[in-house]
């Protein structure tokens, strides 16, 4: 599923930037359609809840959710404000992401460069990658307890595979002429990796990070089921147990907004770091 999504995005982006004025207007058109859609959904939500068509227990009206946003940010819910929940979740995902990049990129490079490393690591990654994190969550709890480590580890595992696989793909796709050029300028093996292979694979690595962050963020809720005291997933989970539906909806919206912001941020970063994409053959 990931690869299909990946190719689509890759091609959509540079193309939209290159062709001059018409697509820009088209993009603006798409944006206004999206904004209208959101507004329509919001309106229907407001209409069906305020008119009493749906009970607040099942779907609270938007203004109630907005009020809860104010309440949770100032007074808090479950002994922590919304921002503290958010901070706890963000810290976990940042730690997991940092660890994943630190380990997955070298692993991906090894898989891409060495037949032997590929033989060893590829089956291991492909074995655990398709397993839903919730399935191996109990095992992680048995091994590492219910502390912070287990939560970060679960997210880490979800992020690791996409980055490693994307890095390996990027490394295998490095232009052979560039490698030869560096070798004929006297590059050592390490210099080749540092100066040619790693920067060449950077676009793919960033795509891997994007996909990894997506799966990581969705694993977060699962991770925070493990006896958490704080976190957005925990907040939603405990609110659900008490049927506080407006907090549940609020939590879901915050999670969605953060995921969307991360995606946009990474796309911007990708364009900043890899401005030549689409320019070279």
């Amino acid at each position: 599923m990931n690869s299909a999504e990946l190719t689509l995005d890759e091609h959509e982006f540079p193309a939209a930037e290159h062709d001059a004025p018409a697509p820009r207007a088209a993009r603006k058109g798409t944006l206004s359609i999206s904004v209208l859609t959101l507004a329509a959904v919001l309106f229907i939500w407001w209409a069906v809840t305020t008119s009493g068509l749906i009970a607040p227990l099942f779907l609270p009206p938007p203004q109630a959710v907005l009020a809860k946003l104010w309440l949770t940010s100032t007074k808090g819910y479950m002994d922590a404000t919304l921002w503290q929940h958010l901070g706890a979740s963000a810290l976990r995902i940042v730690l997991a992401l940092a660890a994943a990049v630190l380990f997955a990129v070298p692993v991906g490079i090894a898989i891409g460069l060495s037949r032997r490393a590929r033989g060893v690591l590829d089956p291991l990654i492909e074995f655990y990658r398709p397993i839903p994190p919730l399935a191996y969550l109990p095992l992680i709890v048995i091994w590492f307890g219910i502390g912070e480590l287990s939560k970060v580890l679960l997210i880490y595992l979800a992020i690791f595979a996409p980055i490693a696989i994307a890095t390996a793909t990027g490394v295998r796709g490095v232009d052979n002429a560039r490698v030869r050029a560096a070798l004929s300028l006297g590059a050592s093996r390490w210099q080749l990796i540092r100066h040619v292979i790693l920067p060449s694979a950077l676009p793919d690595i960033l795509t891997g990070v994007r996909i990894g962050l997506g799966t990581g963020w969705s694993t977060l809720v699962a991770a925070e089921l493990i006896a958490a005291q704080r976190g957005l997933g925990f907040m939603v989970q405990s609110a659900a147990q008490f049927l506080v539906t407006d907090i549940v909806v609020l939590g879901i919206i915050v999670i969605a907004v953060i995921a969307f912001a991360l995606e946009l941020g990474l796309r911007t970063l990708q364009r900043k770091l890899v401005p030549w994409q689409g320019h070279t053959h």
Binding site: A177, R180, V196, H279, H281
Partner: peptide, 10 residues
Amino acid sequence: VFQDDALLPW
């Protein structure tokens, strides 16, 4: 010197 320059775009 290569046919397709093989320069490093970054």
